[in-house]
Design a protein around this nucleic acid. Structure first.
Length: 193
DNA sequence: AGCACGATGCTCT
DNA sequence: GAGCATCGTGCTT
């Protein structure tokens, strides 16, 4: 099926975060397709959103979020974890959708080999980047260009999937109202693998 | 099933 | 120097 185009990402972030549910994240690793259906996303929207990395304005780290939509914002956190986001909205407005979970569909054997343990593979934002081999070199990469090894395919034409909205995860001491904004989106019953 | 904690290093104050 | 969009282990209900 066709890849998501730039216009898909050049929309309000909350719409993109929900529309990404059910679509297929694809990583070409050593010539092989590794893929999974996106089952959980989270929106981070602008400098006003005090949970967003752009809350203190543009920096070297968050610069990609200010760039054109449809690019990957990949950052390092907790000393060991990479996080994958898709940049949204218009160029100049910093916003992105964090990909928090997948249900793996292609390349499961390779994914298992990439983990120490033969367990749950992609039910967390750092687990899925680890399994798919996504790290800092992907930051700023275009998810919509030809020939790239990380992109998203349209796998869900119908947007009538049931979606559960909840507060975002792991925000710590982020002040209200941002702490309680229900900007985490999930397909129900996809949590267990 | 749920909580506490340590790992580990980058970013910004 | 503090905090972090996390994870796995180990211990308690």
């Amino acid at each position: 099926m066709a890849r998501l185009t730039r216009s898909f990402f050049a929309r309000p972030t909350l719409a993109v975060a929900q529309a990404l549910l059910g679509q297929r994240l694809v990583r070409i690793l050593n010539g092989q397709r590794l893929a999974g259906v996106i089952t959980e996303t989270e929106a981070y929207i602008g400098e006003e959103d005090l949970a967003c990395h752009a809350r203190a304005g543009r920096t070297a780290r968050n610069a990609v979020m200010y760039g054109p939509p449809g690019h990957a914002y990949v950052y390092f956190t907790y000393g060991m974890h990479w996080m994958l986001n898709a940049v949204t909205e218009r160029e100049g407005f910093p916003a992105a959708v964090l990909i928090r979970a997948l249900v793996p569909t292609e390349g499961l054997d390779v994914m298992r080999r990439r983990r120490h343990l033969d367990r749950i593979l992609t039910d967390g934002p750092a687990k899925l980047t680890r399994v798919l081999g996504i790290e800092g070199t992907f930051n700023g990469g275009d998810l919509c260009a030809r020939g790239v090894d990380l992109f998203i395919e349209s796998a869900q034409a119908d947007s009538r999937l049931p979606i559960v909205a909840a507060p975002r995860v792991g925000l710590g001491s982020t002040p209200e109202p941002w702490l309680s904004k229900a900007w985490n989106f999930k397909l129900p019953d996809s949590g267990k693998q």
